[in-house]
Nucleic acid binder design. Sequence first.
DNA 1: TTATTAAACAGGAATCATTCTTATTTAGTA
DNA 2: TACTAAATAAGAATGATTCCTGTTTAATAA
Lengths: 147, 147
Amino acid sequence: MSLPETELAVFMERLRESGIKLTHQRMEIFKEVASRMDHPDAASVYERVRERVPTISLDTVYRTLWMLKEAGLITTLGPAHDRLRFDANTAPHHHFVCTICGKTEDFYCDAFNSLNVPQEVNAIGVVERAQVELRGLCNACAKEETK
Amino acid sequence: MSLPETELAVFMERLRESGIKLTHQRMEIFKEVASRMDHPDAASVYERVRERVPTISLDTVYRTLWMLKEAGLITTLGPAHDRLRFDANTAPHHHFVCTICGKTEDFYCDAFNSLNVPQEVNAIGVVERAQVELRGLCNACAKEETK
DNA sequence: TTATTAAACAGGAATCATTCTTATTTAGTA
DNA sequence: TACTAAATAAGAATGATTCCTGTTTAATAA
Ligand SMILES: [Mn+2]
Ligand SMILES: [Mn+2]
Ligand SMILES: [Zn+2]
Ligand SMILES: [Zn+2]
């Protein structure tokens, strides 16, 4: 609900140092997404912000959310970006996901196959499967980067 | 590339025991997705299968992939469901994802924050972040289930 | 083998999330 | 207060996925 003063200050400072304009819309969108712990989608952020800024457009919400991600102030869930992807590997395994190109590679690790989940999680639901997702730069994208 | 005889047998048996018809299309789609380790999207499966079954439709590919998921023969990547979702929680944390309703909840676990990734992964790329993703049934959906 | 029929299919239309285009507005600066 | 590049709103476009409908087919039994 309430947003710590410091978070807002960090947001404003981050924009200033990047030469990005601090608009009314951006302020409201950041306050909305930063105050929610339920991993909202863009439409949900849009609906809520609209109560305070009735003329805001969905496009502005998307643009702002991507900008916030670029600035490292928020992240996206999942292998990010575009389409549904399928996996026929039924053996226990884990994934490395490239944050640039989205390439997703399997890897195997016995230690990761037998993680024991904290008590805390029982209050949420029943775990059926545990997977580790590593995010980073794949070698191909790292090579691109150095130019 | 090549698909072990047993995988195909399991596939055929799984369909039979569920009373699902074993069609030419389903056979080819399963063989395609099961032979690939690159987590293809539906369009990619479609393109490849089309070389062997020129009249196949994209709709059939989608229907079949969902059916295979239902049968437990494949999985989907990410928190599944449809839309992009955003997360403004910048503290190190992990996720529980409900496989029914898609609800995604944060949880915290020091042990998970300091996983050490296997050597193997260095051959793929540079890891920037590691997150554990637990999949299962949330309490609300579990209650629905029992009826 | 042939007939029967519910299930599955192909093709095209529809939907829906996301992105693009463009004319208008505004934050930052002087 | 005036200037200007950046940001916005609105609506059109795109693209992935799903739905609709008439046709085909796998499975079963005569
Ligand atoms: Mn995999
Ligand atoms: Mn989270
Ligand atoms: Zn990459
Ligand atoms: Zn649920």
